[in-house]
Simulated scan of single mutants.
Amino acid sequence: MTIQLKAITSDVQAAPTPAFPALRERQPCFSSTFEGDIQPGRLHLPVSPDCNIDCSFCMRDVNCSNQQLDTAYRVLTTDQALGIVERALQHFPTLSVIGIAGPGDPLATNHALDTFAAVRARWPQLSLCLSTNGLMLPERVDQLAELGVETLTVTVNAIEPTIQAQITPKITWQRHRLDGVAAGERLIANQLDGIARAAALGLTIKVNTMLIPTVNEDHIGDVAAQVAAAGAQLITIVPLIPQHRFAHLPSPGLMKRYVARAEAERHLRVFHDCTQCRADACGVRGLGDYAAALDGDALEAEPSFSHG
């Protein structure tokens, strides 16, 4: 096992850097390499209030201090979001990316797309990035492309419905509730179809996969293989934060994370520098947060992962 993992790591280190030259100076969540001392930053706008799936690891919250998944200080209207962008650009001149990643799923309602349209009309120089669970992606990906969204993150935690049923035991699809394996089958099918459609439209696609001990820890390579075949170009392995229905599970240790990343690297590049941002983060990834400087309706932002 040790020799095999070393060989995988060596192959990845030999790959060309950066992975996405066109995004090198603009998208901190898809590239680890930047010219000089100026690093691009991102602003996440928490405009999406609702979600259409129920994940066992996710506790969406509107709270300024909890270090939880999908947490935001509050949910913004489009007009409030535009005010935040305007103030952020005044305080943070290297801002390059506007992202929407929660606290609900950005494609479950029209709020994210309406906000992107308003941002694009006013600040066409800013890149747009969206994070989604992928359930509605096949239906909405054409709209994303029309709005000029360049980068897309899709959370895919399993490609086997029985495993997905443990992670996401119920979803809402076309105004009907699906449970268990039926929910898993529909979610997986839509995720892979949506990724393929997005790739065909030219979007750069990253997949986030939650590493959940005893649930999908031996399944990461299969996930990476399937999403790579669908058109994803990058994957982030996100260690579980034990909470909600998975509160009894341990967070994966260093070795489990290493093995999972090595398995994923057999199929596509692994992004190692994710700082698990909240749904309202603002600043340079890993180097501090500018949200406190946004006066008035300022967003409070602390590290936490938002999976969309």
Rank of each mutant, 00 (worst) to 15 (best):
F57L: 00
F57K: 03
C58H: 04
C58D: 07
M59H: 09
M59N: 04
V62G: 00
N63M: 02
N63R: 06
C64V: 05
S65A: 13
S65I: 11
S65V: 13
Q67D: 04
Q68D: 02
L69K: 03
T71V: 13
T71D: 00
A72W: 09
Y73W: 11
R74H: 03
V75E: 10
V75A: 05
L76Y: 14
T77F: 12
T78D: 11
Q80H: 05
Q80F: 01
Q80V: 05
L82D: 09
L82Q: 08
G83S: 15
G83M: 14
G83C: 14
V85P: 06
V85G: 07
E86P: 06
E86R: 13
L89H: 05
L89S: 00
H91P: 01
H91F: 10
P93F: 08
T94F: 13
L95T: 11
V97G: 00
V97H: 00
V97P: 01
I98R: 03
G99A: 15
G99L: 11
I100W: 06
I100T: 11
P103T: 13
G104L: 01
G104V: 02
D105A: 05
T109A: 03
T109G: 00
H111V: 00
L113N: 12
D114E: 15
D114Q: 15
T115W: 06
T115F: 04
F116A: 09
A117Q: 08
A117H: 02
A117N: 04
A118Y: 05
A118F: 07
V119S: 07
V119N: 10
V119P: 08
R120L: 13
A121P: 01
R122P: 05
R122K: 13
P124V: 03
L126H: 09
C129N: 06
C129Q: 06
L130S: 06
T132C: 10
T132R: 10
N133W: 01
G134T: 06
L135R: 03
L135H: 04
L137Q: 09
L137W: 08
P138T: 03
E139C: 00
R140M: 07
R140G: 09
R140V: 02
D142A: 15
Q143Y: 03
Q143C: 10
Q143H: 11
L144H: 05
A145Q: 00
E146V: 14
E146K: 15
G148F: 11
G148Y: 11
G148R: 08
V149I: 13
E150V: 10
E150C: 07
T151Q: 11
T151V: 12
L152Y: 12
T153M: 02
T153P: 07
V154K: 08
T155V: 04
N157A: 03
N157V: 02
N157W: 07
A158Q: 04
A158Y: 01
I159V: 15
E160C: 02
E160H: 05
E160F: 06
I163Y: 08
Q164C: 15
A165K: 14
A165Y: 14
A165W: 13
I167R: 09
T168A: 15
T168S: 15
P169M: 14
P169S: 14
K170W: 12
